[in-house]
Design a protein around this nucleic acid. Sequence first.
DNA 1: ATATGTTAATTTGCATGCAAAGTATTTGCA
DNA 2: TGCAAATACTTTGCATGCAAATTAACATAT
Lengths: 144, 144
Amino acid sequence: MSFNQLKLTNQLCHRLYMASNSIVRAYRELLHALNITYPQYVVMMALWEQDKITIAELLEKTAIDGGAMTQILKKMVDKCLLEIVKDHQDKRKRLVQLTKQGQALKLKAVDIPNEIGCKFESINSEQADQLMRLLDLVISDLRV
Amino acid sequence: MSFNQLKLTNQLCHRLYMASNSIVRAYRELLHALNITYPQYVVMMALWEQDKITIAELLEKTAIDGGAMTQILKKMVDKCLLEIVKDHQDKRKRLVQLTKQGQALKLKAVDIPNEIGCKFESINSEQADQLMRLLDLVISDLRV
DNA sequence: ATATGTTAATTTGCATGCAAAGTATTTGCA
DNA sequence: TGCAAATACTTTGCATGCAAATTAACATAT
């Protein structure tokens, strides 16, 4: 691998780091009205799609760290967005379930994707698609 | 914008979030031997390229948050990797300068880019280049 | 049936990322 | 000259991300 490519890889990683921070910052602004953070929004998205799933399934869907998830869910319970109930089949497991408030928040969040989409002025549908495919390669390569 | 594209944008953001976390995790492993974190490595990269610059310039180069930078530099001073000296021209400014140890670490870090590069098995040079260009668009669009 | 290993979650400790408030300095302008 | 606005940083408080250690509950092999 050439020197230039080595430098490219380093720069690529730095760009990914910058882009991710930018994304979270952009969402922060929009989510402020809903009083949730980006990781909390990701959790809500997962639950709006499929409610009453185990924490393990939620971890799988969101790719959020397990240790962080415990804290995040705790805060969301405090906000009355969801509740955590025991699984009587397997007492190790716990099920995450939206409250009425949590379900209702979906309506308030309906414009978020559009508002985020509007920020991507210079990226068209094909580029977004391509970017997504490339990111999947990165994620897949880095998965041990 | 169609529903599918809205969903795509959301997924794109999530992928960026996942990819960035994966990158930092991958570096963590490699940087463990050097006893520094990824943001600290980014600071070192900037200083190896140009030493004795102001904190503002370092913020510009690294895209690290100002509040975080103060803490990061403090830890790096504790590790004797760099020192912070006053700028006599403008007493508001402070200059960041590598110590001998900080300079010497460059040699130990010489293989890092290659080791990271090796992890990207399924991405060739052109794809990396393209990914970088797309990320620049994202970063640019999200910059207020 | 019991010891061992595996799973599902939580806890802890450390390092950011970021907004907002605070502290010096320096500039710019009336 | 004098003072408000702009700069360059630091501090504080809150929310993760992650590794490592723990706890509780299943699974399995012997």
